[in-house]
Amino acid sequence: MMDRIAAFGRVGIETIASFGRASQFLAGVVGGVPKPSVGFPLLIRQLYAVGVLSLAIVVVSGLFIGMVLGLQGYTILSDFGSEAAIGQMIALTLVRELAPVVTALLFAGRAGSALTAEIGLMKATEQLSSMEMMGVDPLRRVIAPRLWAGFLAMPVLAMIFSVVGVIGGMLVGVEWLGVFEGSYWGNMQASVDFVDDVVNGIIKSVVFGFVCAWIAVYQGYDCVPTSAGISSATTKTVVYSSLAVLGLDFVLTAVMFGNF
């Protein structure tokens, strides 16, 4: 019994210590902003790596999710003779929930895991150490551009996801199932509020982007520098990011749309 209590306590202490290290790490990264002349090209390169290269998976996923929403929405709404509201349903579902959440999950799986593996491998091959010994701070040079790139890329990816999803829903609802095009766009325009829906969705994706990028770069930087350590860190990135996104989504939804 005492052993179990001790083990429980040890896990608690280790978790708090890890969170403390991650916060200290974040302070070091955010505090150490490189000069614009140095930092901007690095940021652009990372925006390409984590943002542009994630476009394909985001666009394809957005298109199919929009199409599925169109099919499901039509099936349900037509029972009530309300299939004209399909545009409203698809847009609100995407903008408020699915775009930020699914984009974040896709981001964690594609870009987050890649960031962790890249940084972990740089650590294992002593590239980060050699950078330190050259008088170059790896937190500024390697970590900061990747963190900011994730933070900036996520909202843009989520918006693209929403747009493509709406087009996918239109392809199924309007082009295939015959919903009147005017109703599709008109209901969407009338019901989607820019501040309540679009801005709140963007805020969600900004938060998710920051958390996913933080987890990814920290796991890479803190990993055990062996092949097993990098593998474990990559897995942790995907699992922790997914859980954090889903948990935070509930909290943010409650705050934004709870109407308590």
């Binding site: 002593e126 590239q127 150490s129 010994m133 050259m134 008088g135």
Partner: peptide, 19 residues
């Protein structure tokens, strides 16, 4: 410390080149 390291060079066992 980083300024002092500019006066140091270190050859790592693995070479530690940027891949």
């Amino acid at each position: 410390l980083y300024r002092l390291r500019e006066k140091m060079g270190m050859l790592f066992q693995s070479g530690a080149l940027f891949t």
